[in-house]
Design a protein around this nucleic acid. Structure first.
Length: 740
DNA sequence: AGCACGCCGACT
DNA sequence: GTCGGCGTGCTC
């Protein structure tokens, strides 16, 4: 309220105090910012994190840069409630949010929300209460009191009550007693940092040979400063981590922050310990199951610069770092980097954009780079750092294909005699075998031998998979399950249900038949007992408490099993023909990871891959250890479909009655959205033709050359969407740099 | 995204 | 006669 206009005359002729209006991004799927009034005496600037009323509730928003639109009824304007006491989002961060919103066709408010999603962290952490020694002696000295005074006499520092009691080996009542007698005063001190400061020179770099050159190259890029993008391509165990640790060390020496992105699953204690061994402290962690309290403290530390290094899952990319100077994307090819709800983005690609906007280096790392990163490296957009050999005493396993047409398993079995012999030998040596089959349960299909009835999901029509351990039949598509019936629901015949094809449980049965003495364990996501049990089992395996491990893709990542000298892949062809345009690439990546589990401590190790297609480029690439021919082929294939000029790819899931029906949907969309350059249909597994009958989820791939084309397509989907059941999302599969 | 309003089936 | 399903609409 103006205090100047003291009389009516003045009030009539003075301009009314100009109400400041600012645009604010609110966490809504609105196309742009909303306008709010700034109350008298409040200071805000672009990037300020504020609280505003929105309908009946209070939400967190960010003051934005764009001009507020003046067509808005001023009466609708509501005032900002409060400004949080934390640094505003930087101009770079705001530009990044705008860019991601534009590129992924998402509402900017929802993108901004990802940056400030740390509920109560917006106010500084309250000071904690501590005590400080003021000098003097108590009238009565006791041994406990002496120990305390001994400790505090040395330095003039503040202690927490509990901390001092613990350090002196006394109970807190001793401290309280001394405080009462006036020897200590109460002080307030800042809370301790969430993580200690990492020291770039804590331990020497553990690199040699090709690692040294790669590290030198990447350190030089960091030292030079400015944007650069590199791809470290090296087999499992080749020392990739050690190489990028040197880039991190150099960034820390410059006093800038580092973000290490990892697929959630790779964010294990073993990674954190490795980091600690090199830098003397753990990095800050950021992932979905942090406690709210820790989340707030880490967020605060990142914003203020107190946390130097963050190891986080994809959502960490949107953290508002105070002074970010390097991003590392480990396991660059991992599909977990793709978020497919609300805002659809690939964190790896958006990370490149963030580095470019922030003008600092980014390093992508993988043993099996994605095809698009290979293309970018070939095109010279990424520096390629190739680490061809294993590091230290870790030897590459000897890989062979087993042609299943020539070495067929026994009737009713799935393990080739060649593989069975190898398992036997491995047991004799006292080593471990890993049998990999990426299929949960007992059998993928169950039918009645009498009437031919097949168990099908009542909700989504895929086959129900029998799980003998749980005595259930489950749908792996939608999660539907029911107890395994004893009789055929169609004809009522008892005991005539027959399992078709293998799952890990069935392989375990076969293994136990051949090696009844061996200690066998099945590792799959439906292991009873959850993540805790899983950890225990993995530790037990690492200690050597199992002879044969039978697992799904769960065993592909992370863990080191020192005694694992044989890896057998049961159905290496599985997944090659499932209609996914990335089928070959994914299979290559998965099988490379699994075979990489062997031989990591130098023991001579073997990998045997059972296949019906030994000539397939993926199989050849895996055994030869030279994936270049395979990548060349994939690049050519992908260029036809995904890579520029078809720069952008959306995909729509439709539920359709068979392929013909799905094609009909596609035709309708083509007619309705002529601006997109192509719409193709991908089905469920093509191999067993029977699968394509019945109601299924099909994926329509939509290509567009420009963002505006995709925008137009989305418009069409908004109108027709409800008629086409399913979801629409935009995938970003190509070089985001070219869009900057 | 939340949250209210609003119109049709199975129950205190 | 109500409780509750989620379809549509709005938030500066």
């Amino acid at each position: 309220m103006s205090t100047e206009s003291t009389n009516l005359f003045g009030a009539l002729f003075e301009a009314p105090p100009a109400r400041q209006v600012v645009p604010v991004l609110v966490p809504l799927p609105a196309p742009g910012p909303y306008s709010y009034a700034v109350p008298e005496g409040m200071h805000v600037e672009p990037g300020s994190i504020i609280q505003v009323p929105l309908g009946p509730r209070q939400v967190i928003g960010v003051v934005w840069d764009s001009q507020p639109d003046d067509k808005l009824d001023p009466k609708k304007l509501r005032p900002i409630t409060q400004v949080f006491d934390c640094p505003p989002l930087s101009a770079d961060m705001r530009r990044f949010i705008e860019w991601v919103a534009g590129y992924t066709l998402s509402p900017p408010g929802l993108v901004a929300r990802m940056a400030i999603r740390a509920p109560a962290a917006l106010e500084p952490e309250p000071m904690i209460e501590g005590i400080r020694y003021m000098g003097g002696q108590p009238e009565r000295m006791t041994p406990a009191r002496a120990r305390v005074l001994d400790l505090v006499g040395e330095e003039d520092i503040s202690w927490t009550r509990a901390g001092l009691a613990h350090a002196a080996g006394v109970s807190t009542s001793v401290i309280d007693g001394l405080t009462q007698r006036g020897l200590f005063e109460t002080v307030f001190m800042p809370p301790p940092p969430v993580v200690a400061r990492p020291d770039p020179d804590y331990a020497a770099a553990r690199i040699e040979g090709p690692q040294t050159e790669a590290a030198a190259e990447i350190v030089a890029l960091v030292r030079k400063g400015g944007f650069s993008s590199s791809l470290i391509d090296g087999v499992t165990g080749s020392g990739k981590t050690e190489v990028y640790f040197e880039a991190i060390a150099e960034t820390l020496r410059q006093g800038r922050q580092v973000l290490i992105l990892l697929p959630e699953i790779a964010l294990t204690s073993s990674f954190l310990e490795r980091f600690q061994d090199r830098f003397g402290a753990k990095p800050g962690e950021w992932h979905s199951d942090l406690s709210p309290r820790t989340r707030e403290r880490v967020w605060r530390g990142i914003v203020t610069g107190a946390v130097q290094v963050v190891a986080g899952a994809r959502s960490a990319l949107f953290l508002p770092f105070e002074n970010l100077g390097l991003i590392v994307v480990d396991e660059e090819h991992d599909p977990a980097y793709k978020q497919e709800d609300r805002v659809f983005y690939n964190a790896r690609d958006m990370a490149v954009v963030r580095a470019r906007i922030g003008d600092f280096p980014i390093v992508l790392v993988s043993a099996t780079p994605s095809v698009e990163s290979k293309v970018n490296a070939q095109a010279g957009r990424y520096h390629l750092l190739h680490l061809p050999t294993r590091f230290g005493d870790a030897a590459m396993p000897d890989l062979h294909l087993i042609d299943m047409r020539r070495h067929a398993p026994q009737r009713g079995g799935f393990l080739s005699p060649v593989l069975l012999r190898a398992i036997g030998k491995t047991i004799e040596h006292g080593h471990q075998s890993l049998l990999f089959l990426n299929r949960r349960g007992y059998a993928p299909l169950t039918l009645c031998r009498v009437c031919g009835h097949r168990f099908q999901c009542p909700q989504c029509s895929s086959w129900l998979v029998e799980h003998r351990f749980r005595n259930q039949i489950q749908c792996h598509q939608c999660g539907y399950h029911e107890p395994t019936p004893e009789a055929c629901p169609e004809c009522g015949t008892l005991d005539h249900l027959v399992a078709c094809g293998p799952g890990v449980e069935r392989i375990a049965e076969e293994v136990e038949k051949h090696f009844p003495e061996a200690r066998t364990i099945v590792m799959s996501s439906d292991l009873l007992g959850g993540v805790k049990r899983l950890r225990l089992e993995l530790d037990a395996i690492a200690r050597g408490d199992a002879d044969i491990v039978i697992g799904t893709q769960l065993v592909a990542k992370g863990h080191n099993f020192p005694l694992m000298t044989l890896v057998g892949i049961i159905d290496a062809d599985l997944g090659l023909a499932n209609g996914d345009p990335r089928a070959a690439e994914r299979t290559f990546q998965l099988l490379s990871q699994v075979t990489g589990r062997a031989g990591r401590t130098g023991l001579k190790s073997h990998g045997l891959l059972q296949t019906y297609q030994p000539q397939h480029p993926v199989m050849q690439a895996i055994v030869s250890g030279d994936p270049s021919a395979f990548y060349e082929r994939e690049i050519t294939e992908r260029e036809k479909a995904i890579l520029p000029p078809f720069g952008r790819l959306a995909s729509v899931i439709v539920s359709a009655e068979g392929r013909a029906d799905a094609e009909l949907h596609a035709r309708g969309l083509r007619a309705a959205a002529p601006q997109v350059s192509g719409i193709s249909v991908l089905g469920p597994a093509e191999a067993p033709l029977a699968l394509v009958r019945g109601r299924h989820r099909f994926r329509l791939l939509v290509h567009g050359r420009r963002n505006s084309d995709m925008q137009g397509f989305l418009q069409v989907m908004m109108e027709k969407g409800p008629k086409i059941r399913g979801s629409v999302h935009v995938q970003i599969d190509v070089d985001p740099q070219s869009f900057l």
